[in-house]
Design a protein around this nucleic acid. Structure first.
Lengths: 252, 252
DNA sequence: CCATTCGTACGATAATATAGTATGCAGTTC
DNA sequence: GAACTGCATACTATATTATCGTACGAATGG
């Protein structure tokens, strides 16, 4: 955040757009000017510009204004993964700091988890995982979170392929997997006990949107011996708190 | 459109946002200032404000900027029906004028068509139909368009209830309905021959989005004797052209 | 038919956005 | 490792520009 002063006309213009967002109805010049305590002519100047640019539109009968199509097309251009990564970063850094380990943030794409965010503590051993890495669902903590909290039909589809062993701990038996998933559903977290890579363990929890659909998963990941030294309950609590914060921060 | 001069800082701020929309990548202050031919300090002032307001966000490592989450939440607040109605109005007015009849624009909601837009010609007899009116799918031209071009499973669901006769022309036989729908699919338009109300006829065509899903239906509607005096082919052509224009105008 | 209300236009003024300059940081080159 | 380069950001003077009061015309209501 810079200390430079904000441009007044911009602040006002966006407060108008946000007013429409909040009230969710068409408004007249007068209504806006009283709602924001600005002079009618100032509001008209702003509104008129916003309309000419397509961010507002005017009903030709009532002369009232409403959000325009440009707002929609701008919204479509936003990479929601970028935003998720940004928010996750802010919420997960404290977790990294507390346990002195790496945290990861993933989203599911076409049957894989994709790493979109990562925070490290000063002292944490650097993991090889890079942003953009893809991994299968069945053999990672975050992947198992997705399997546990996705709609059932997707889970079945994802588990229809054979479960290749990555280590001797990888769950390859489909029935064992389903009981693992119901355990995850019950507890609200997944534990990856060296199922993808020897020596690496992780604790993972799901992140939900407002309608309780899973939109991401986050994890605390590190060398097994160090993860097992930590208090599992504390990790889970911290991760769940972070997941809640992410959810909240995503719905403005 | 007012003749009042646009507010410069607003125009510039939104040209920055639109630049991100077009290029679809993170950009530095320098890149933006050269792309838009504005001084670096001006751009910084704008960007800084946009960032503080949440419409841009800065990557803490690269210091580059990208669209922020507020853009998303604004986009979610837009009523796409409003925009459709607005665009439809612009595209349908010429059709009204040409045939001197009323045009209507509908969307489907929970098994009904809802009238969201309407244009009239100076001389057209005023129809009772008001914005917001709901009608069943099987007995209207626009509704039959939806039935013909929706995914099959929806069509079957919609037609599982009994088809109550509204007039003596209402199609109540399910097999007759299915042959009517395949005719509509073949021709690309639907004709409502007083199936909802005696004395009223209409010609309707579907409106598709970029992935060819039906998102709306539009019609020319009027007293049967007048509609039948007109050249059906010409009406269909005009409506299809309007439908195409609507589609194009919705994807910016 | 007058009174009121509202959207829009206009113009004077002062506030404000602008652009030039300055600073400081990070990476690069020799 | 020092000097150089390129960049983001801060500062400041100035003139442009956003703002607000005023005004007009159209629509509405009593």
């Amino acid at each position: 955040m810079g200390k430079t002063k904000n441009i007044q006309s911009l602040e006002r213009a966006f407060s108008i757009l946000e007013l429409f967002e909040q009230t969710n109805k068409k408004m007249s010049v007068k209504e806006i000017s009283t709602a924001l305590d600005l002079s009618k002519s100032t509001v008209f100047g702003l509104i008129n510009t916003l309309s000419n640019l397509g961010y507002l539109m005017q009903d030709s009968e009532t002369l009232k204004y409403n959000l325009g199509f440009k707002v929609l097309s701008l919204g479509n251009a936003v990479s929601s993964n970028d935003i998720l990564a940004k928010v996750a970063d802010r919420c997960l850094q404290p977790v990294s700091d507390k346990f002195q380990e790496t945290t990861l943030c993933v989203v599911e794409e076409n049957g894989y988890v994709v790493y979109i965010g990562k925070t490290e503590s000063s002292s944490s051993i650097v993991l090889k995982t890079r942003i953009g890495t893809k991994k299968e669902l069945y053999c990672t903590g975050v992947g198992k979170c997705y399997l546990a909290f996705m709609p059932q039909e997707y889970t079945q589809k994802m588990l229809s392929k054979s479960l290749e062993p990555k280590t001797e701990n990888t769950i390859t038996n489909i029935e064992k997997m389903y009981s693992e998933l119901s355990l995850i559903q019950k507890n609200g977290y997944a534990f990856d006990n060296e199922e993808y890579e020897n020596g690496i363990a992780c604790v993972a929890v799901p992140v939900f949107d407002k309608s309780k659909r899973i939109i991401s998963a986050i994890s605390l990941t590190g060398p097994t011996f160090r993860i097992k030294e930590l208090d599992l309950n504390e990790i889970v609590l911290s991760l769940k708190e972070a997941a809640n914060n992410i959810s909240k921060n995503l719905m403005v």
